[in-house]
Design a protein around this nucleic acid. Sequence first.
DNA 1: CTTGAAAAATGAATTCATTCAGTCTTTTTG
DNA 2: CAAAAAGACTGAATGAATTCATTTTTCAAG
Lengths: 207, 207
Amino acid sequence: MTGLRARQKADKNRRILEAATGLFHEVGYDAARIEDIAERAAVSVGTFYNYYQSKGDMLLATVAMEVEEVLDSGRSIVADPPRDVLSAVTLLVDQYYDHSLVYLSKEMWRTAMAISIQQPETPFSKRYTDLDRTLCAQVSTLVSNLQRKGAVRDEIDAGAVGAMFFNNLNMMFTEFVRDETMTLERLKLEVARQNRPLATLVSVAAT
Amino acid sequence: MTGLRARQKADKNRRILEAATGLFHEVGYDAARIEDIAERAAVSVGTFYNYYQSKGDMLLATVAMEVEEVLDSGRSIVADPPRDVLSAVTLLVDQYYDHSLVYLSKEMWRTAMAISIQQPETPFSKRYTDLDRTLCAQVSTLVSNLQRKGAVRDEIDAGAVGAMFFNNLNMMFTEFVRDETMTLERLKLEVARQNRPLATLVSVAAT
DNA sequence: CTTGAAAAATGAATTCATTCAGTCTTTTTG
DNA sequence: CAAAAAGACTGAATGAATTCATTTTTCAAG
């Protein structure tokens, strides 16, 4: 059977993760003190640091879970996209955006992004970067699939176009979480507008 | 004449700014302690906080100066760009990138970006965001100017295309500062590659 | 030239994330 | 099963940013 030690470790890890996500939701990232997280998880402060390198590391762990789901939710769209390029891209992008606020507040996103930029070498930061790359690849795959279906011109560099769509949606999402007054609706509209020229131009039907 | 108080204030502000930029360069952002900055500027710690809201605020002030220069250096290119769209965009983008590391290290950029995302409401953060917007507008103006010259198709939404180029270059710059091993050369090549499809497609000569 | 606001400056105290030297628990070995 | 080794846990101590109650300096009115 699994050793006692391993079981206890898994249990503690779960307790810490739950305590942290709970507190982050209840009081926000900044106001959640390590001491409080540790107390709620019934471990000492020191133990918290045995499981996570830092407070930021902890947050990125919860963000990573979120992004995994977003990736998942995009798969079916990529597998069978509408034939129109702008529709397909918009469908995928909106899917991403709609999912993004299910578990995380704008504040948490801001903090997570800030940490992943500032300390790019921590393990969870690397995981976050990887997830970003995977998301970017997913968009490129969408373009590539549309190309195979004959909806996107053959001579187009699907990787480059996918990266462009992705960088755009990512940058705009950053703007969105920075601005507490911006709504999801406005974000989607704006991004769709920005995507239109490229989407139209790479389409087979384009003039 | 200017009151004594106003003169002293300006002088102190200059001393603090110089002390901070100096220390940031010499030892990096993290290692520069407020106490040291204050000492070098010959003021107390408390006074430092009368002039800047936080250490991050201080950094963003130095970054803002840098971005102003970048903007400036772009103006002449926008005013009289090469007629080829990809060349024009690449020239401008490379100009931005080359200038970016003159005063600031990757570490400083990372920290500045992190702060501007995490605390978007502080005054310098807003200034930073404004500068970003101005940069974006400059790229759009370039596209618009190329359009007036007849190098870009008439029906194209210059604002949308400019935003796309800008978001792409900005996002890639973020990746660049995150990765200590990435060189300016590699960054430029990659961005040029990503820009090529859109640049080609909006060009008048495009197939 | 006084004097009493108003503005600035001060630095000791506070707050929190993070560390680390010592203690306790589990596992392994003989 | 006993002893030793390895692995976890602990919480008081550390260090740095930020705050704030006091003190000092400047300004302007009479």
